[in-house]
Amino acid sequence: MKKTIKIDREFITLGQFLKHVNIISSGGMAKWYLSEHTILLDKEVENRRGKKIYPGSVVEIPDEGTYFIQAESPAELKEDEK
Rank of each mutant, 00 (worst) to 15 (best):
P74V: 06
V45I: 10
S35P: 00
D63M: 00
L41C: 09
E81V: 11
R9Q: 15
K51T: 09
I53H: 03
H37M: 00
A30K: 08
G65E: 11
P74T: 06
Q16H: 10
L77N: 12
I7Q: 12
V45E: 15
G56F: 08
Y67F: 14
K43D: 15
F68M: 12
F11N: 14
H20Q: 13
E36Y: 04
L34F: 05
K2P: 10
K51V: 06
L34Q: 01
S57C: 13
Y67R: 06
K31L: 05
Y33V: 04
K52T: 01
K52N: 11
G50D: 06
G15S: 14
E76M: 11
K43A: 07
Q70L: 12
D80L: 14
S35R: 02
K43W: 01
G50A: 10
S26I: 07
A75Y: 08
R9M: 04
K82Y: 01
E81Q: 13
N22Q: 14
V59N: 02
E44H: 09
E46I: 02
Y33A: 01
S26Y: 09
E72W: 06
I24E: 06
D80W: 12
E10W: 06
R9G: 07
F68R: 13
E64N: 11
L14F: 05
A30P: 01
I7N: 04
W32H: 10
P62T: 03
F68P: 05
K52P: 02
T38I: 12
K19I: 00
K6R: 05
Y54R: 07
S25I: 10
Y67L: 01
I24L: 11
T4Y: 09
P74L: 06
I39E: 05
K78V: 03
T4S: 12
Y54D: 09
I61K: 07
E72T: 04
T13W: 03
K51S: 13
A75M: 05
W32I: 01
G15K: 09
E36W: 07
I23M: 05
H20N: 12
D80E: 14
D63C: 00
P55I: 09
I5R: 14
R49G: 14
A30F: 01
I12W: 01
M1V: 03
N47K: 13
Q16M: 05
G15L: 00
L14E: 05
S26Q: 11
I23D: 00
G56E: 01
P55V: 03
S73K: 15
L40P: 11
D8P: 07
G50L: 02
E60W: 03
I23F: 02
I24R: 14
E81M: 15
I12Y: 07
S26A: 01
E10V: 08
A75G: 13
V59P: 03
P62K: 11
V59G: 06
E72P: 08
